[in-house]
């Protein structure tokens, strides 16, 4: 088991570095960073000065290697815009995004899992169709639109929640619902099909033949089997929450990593963008790793080959 985790962890780190390399190449090769920093109207002289000042005249591989060397010592460079170490900047803002992502995931689980379970236990009933309706709507509605509608409905017309900001947990309610809604369809469908499949399995028939029924049957024989695929998808969804925070944080003016990412991209703050991509990649990979470990813990077929 420990060996399994160690191997998966090693693989995860490799994936994260591959992602960072891809990001680095995109930022540095696909466009001219010096030009981006200087702005479109800058004269070639200014651009050249910037290029030398930020060390952008060195070859790409050399810059990537020195960035890697920095990462190894926890030094992600200095922000061009804020003139602070990027690591410090990211650490300051991580709290808000983490809160938002986790509460969004909580919203997803709260809606999707019970709804999916009800639908899965009563396939083709009215409740199944209603759940499907919810899923299709949630899939079809764009995130930013839902955000604006929620602000109009629950912050302006019926002022229950604040319009924007990140000072109290109260501020996070609407953003969490908006960000969480986007994951509801995938998680709900998987819960539904998982339960339908499990309830039709031979071992459920065996358990019935032993006299289990209703809740006891569900609790003792169906839940663990049905939850296995859901865990994997929840982990991926949590990774996506970090990505999704870019839009949601901007709408609700939350000072988190998502907003920082948007500002840095607009301001060509390359060291910040580079670190954020690396952090998001690590989160994504770490979540998948966590899902693998959880699955192995719950499923002996993975644990004991």
């Amino acid at each position: 088991m420990l060996k399994y985790i160690a191997l998966k962890g090693l693989l995860a780190i490799l994936v994260a570095f591959t992602a960072s390399l891809a990001a680095f190449l995109l930022l540095n090769v696909a466009s001219d960073p010096a030009q981006a920093i200087a702005g479109e109207d800058a004269t070639p002289d200014v651009v050249e000065t910037i290029r030398i000042r930020y060390g952008l005249d060195r070859p790409v591989y050399e810059r990537y290697l020195s960035w890697l060397a920095g990462v190894a010592t926890g030094d992600f460079g200095e922000s061009y815009y804020w003139h602070k170490p990027v690591a410090e900047l990211v650490a300051d803002r991580a709290d808000e995004t983490l809160t938002l992502a986790l509460s969004a995931l909580f919203v997803t689980i709260l809606i999707a899992v019970p709804l999916g379970a009800l639908a899965g236990l009563n396939p083709n009933s009215w409740i199944d169709r209603a759940a499907l309706g919810v899923a299709v709507s949630a899939q079809a509605i764009p995130n930013f639109w839902l955000g604006l509608i929620m602000i109009i409905l629950f912050a302006v017309m019926i002022p229950i929640f604040p319009v924007s900001g990140d000072n109290t947990w109260y501020h996070f309610v609407l953003p969490a619902i908006v960000l969480g809604a986007s994951s509801v369809p995938a998680v709900m469908r998987l819960t539904r099909t998982g339960l339908i499949e499990v309830m039709g399995a031979d071992y459920i028939r065996t358990a019935r033949a032993k006299g289990f029924r209703g809740n006891a049957l569900l609790r003792r024989h169906a839940l663990r089997n049905a939850i296995l695929p859901v865990i994997s998808v929840l982990a991926v969804q949590l990774g996506q929450k970090f990505g999704g925070s870019v839009i949601t944080e901007s709408i609700f003016a939350i000072n988190g990593l998502g907003r920082l990412a948007l500002e840095s991209i607009l301001g060509a703050d390359i060291p910040t963008v580079q670190m954020l991509i690396f952090v998001f990649a690590i989160v994504f990979v770490a979540m998948n790793l966590l899902a693998d470990i959880l699955n192995a813990a719950l499923d002996p077929r993975i644990r004991i080959g």
Binding site: D202, A209, K210, G211, H221, R224, N225, L228, P300, R301
Partner: peptide, 22 residues
């Protein structure tokens, strides 16, 4: 009845036991 009255064994021994429990 189910169990203490009538017990039943099925065709597929590979799938009739729950894979995640001992």
């Amino acid at each position: 009845i189910s169990g203490p009255g009538i017990g039943m064994i099925f065709q597929e021994p590979m799938t009739s036991l729950n894979p995640v429990y001992t």
